[in-house]
Amino acid sequence: MLKKLKVIGGRLTDGEKPVRLFGMSTHGIAWYPEYVCEEVFRALHDEWKTNCVRIAVYTDEFRGYCNGGDKEHMKDLVENGVSIAEKLGMYVIVDWHVLRDCDPMRYADEAEEFFSDMSARFADRSNVLYEICNEPNGSGTWDRITEYSNRMIPVIRKNSPDAVIIVGTPNWSQDIHCALDRPLEYDNVMYSLHFYAATHKHAIRNRLERCAKAGLPVFINEFNLCEASGKGEIDYEESAAWFDVIERLGLSCICWCLSNHGDTCGVFAQNCTKLSHWEDDDLKESGRIVRDKFMDFAEEEKNK
């Protein structure tokens, strides 16, 4: 059974020593449900050597949880994913994927119902982390995120008192300094930083280093090597600089995303429908680079 994780001294740990989670995020499971299955998760674990999967539940987009989506089907998909991951010895991030809604308070009632149900279902699971708001932006200020977090965290903690909770930060989860200046008053909380290497460069890395060195628990729970739009070319130099910081600071990181969408960020080639045993031709270049980097991470962790 996987150890329940704890945040100690600004680091994610197993209660004794630091732990680094790394793996893939699904795209929205309303549109790509096929990737939430044992075949995919086993391939990510056995072939790519990853130890974590992020399951993205979009909120306001078409067929999202709060915009005409099948709520019960999405919750059942999440539960199935958590069970598969537990069987394989993997952790899962349950992601309430705020994006177009900007301010997480917009659907706070729906979020409260979702996290109340999810945390009750997973009360005895040691492999679940909760991401309560993916990318607040626009009107999603730190004040509004704080208000939302102060409502949502007690809902989760009622059922899962020791769960690690990841909180998004303003400006599409880039302004982590807001959390450093005014952190939430809860234990076992981490703060999101997202980067897309061709857009987010040294200024964001400097911010990350300053916050991490000051003891802020940071989780890079979404990244890719292209532009923030998910499109465009890979920036190799900036990607290498980001990986250097991740390794030097021992940070957890999750790549966006499991899909064969035409955008650069979808790691599978558009004509790839395979759910395992992916060869180089089945992957976009971003997928090949990230796969190899995750395998390097796994080897490093094994040799510690």
Rank of each mutant, 00 (worst) to 15 (best):
W242V: 01
E110Q: 14
R151K: 12
M1H: 10
S160I: 04
K87F: 07
S139P: 00
E112A: 14
L216F: 04
R54F: 05
G10T: 01
R207P: 00
G232K: 02
E247H: 01
K213E: 13
A214G: 03
V40F: 00
Y32I: 09
K201T: 06
V7D: 06
D187S: 12
V78S: 12
P217T: 08
N127V: 05
V36S: 03
V167C: 08
I156G: 01
M90C: 10
P217W: 09
W172Y: 14
K17I: 06
E38Y: 07
E38H: 02
L77E: 08
E16P: 00
F268S: 01
F243R: 03
I156D: 03
I204V: 12
E300R: 15
T13A: 03
C255T: 03
E47P: 00
E279I: 02
V155P: 00
A108R: 11
C253G: 05
D60A: 15
L216W: 00
C226R: 02
D263E: 15
N206Q: 15
E47G: 07
M105N: 13
C178A: 14
M24E: 06
P33A: 12
W278E: 07
T169K: 03
N260A: 13
C226Q: 07
L225G: 02
L208Q: 02
R288G: 06
N224K: 02
F223S: 04
C133M: 15
T50S: 06
S276P: 00
V36D: 07
H200Y: 07
G15V: 09
V57S: 10
H277P: 00
F122L: 07
S126A: 15
L251G: 01
H202C: 13
K3Y: 10
Y91M: 10
L225F: 02
V218Q: 02
D244I: 09
N221A: 14
A241K: 10
D46V: 04
N271D: 15
I165C: 05
F41E: 07
R106Y: 08
Y236M: 09
A30M: 08
R248S: 14
E112Y: 05
I145S: 08
S149I: 08
K274Y: 02
A228L: 14
E233S: 12
Q174K: 14
S252H: 01
E222G: 12
W172P: 00
V7K: 03
N303R: 12
S276C: 06
P183H: 11
V57D: 03
E135T: 06
K158A: 11
I132N: 12
M118G: 05
C226S: 13
M105C: 15
R157C: 08
N137V: 08
L44E: 09
S286Y: 06
N80R: 15
L44R: 00
K6C: 08
F294D: 06
I93W: 00
E39T: 05
E110N: 10
A203R: 15
